[in-house]
Amino acid sequence: MLLEVKDLRIHYGGAEAVQGASFEVAEGEIVALIGANGAGKTSILRTISGLKRLTSGEIRFMGERIDRKPTAHIVRVGIGHCPEGRHVFMMMSVKENLQVGAHIRKDKAEIARDMEAIYQSFPILKTRAKQDANTLSGGEQQMLAIARALMSRPKLLLLDEPSLGLSPIVVQEVARIISDIHRSGVSVLLVEQNSVMALNLADRGYVLETGRVTLEGAGKELLHNEAVRRAFLGG
């Protein structure tokens, strides 16, 4: 198993945001974690990356316990994280953002090749390579944030709400990019409020409600599940 999360509990202040969630991601999978606002999705991703510490439970990546490791180590073992709200480095150029994404690598020639490959699949980033990230539109910033996360050559990519605040056409574009990334051999853990998009892409999905996993199954199966339809898909 690539990523195993067992009995994860996370507290924010006094409140228990995640109350014993368990799930896993196998190599080569896209797994969707869906749930309403406040269900604890972002907390889980931040905890996997080590930005937030768990109260109890365990997280394993390729068999190694990573739940007490510093974030920089977690990135080095192969977990890329594209955070909610994109968080591109605003006053840096697109190219610099990508260079920062490759921080853990020192193989200059390979980095240059990866950057070229990124420009191939995101032509808009090539056009804007020298512009500061704050001149980009929301969709372009999302592309940049995903591309930046890819520059570390992750084995597992954590995507936090990549469709947030984007128009339906751009959401389609993002979905296409996610399946491209998956096809290139990167496993994906996708957190989304846009359940239709997420479950269409995913091999498997987990439904998170108030910090608990209440349902799991194949993506298509959840998409047609009566309870999921009622809760998240508006009928």
């Binding site: 974030t71 955070p83 480095f89 921080h103 930046r148």
Partner: peptide, 17 residues
């Protein structure tokens, strides 16, 4: 670059390793 990234957004800089 890493120092500048840390200065503007420490969490996200962390996520770049």
């Amino acid at each position: 670059r890493a120092m500048r990234a840390t200065a503007v957004d420490p969490d996200t800089a962390n996520l770049q390793g």
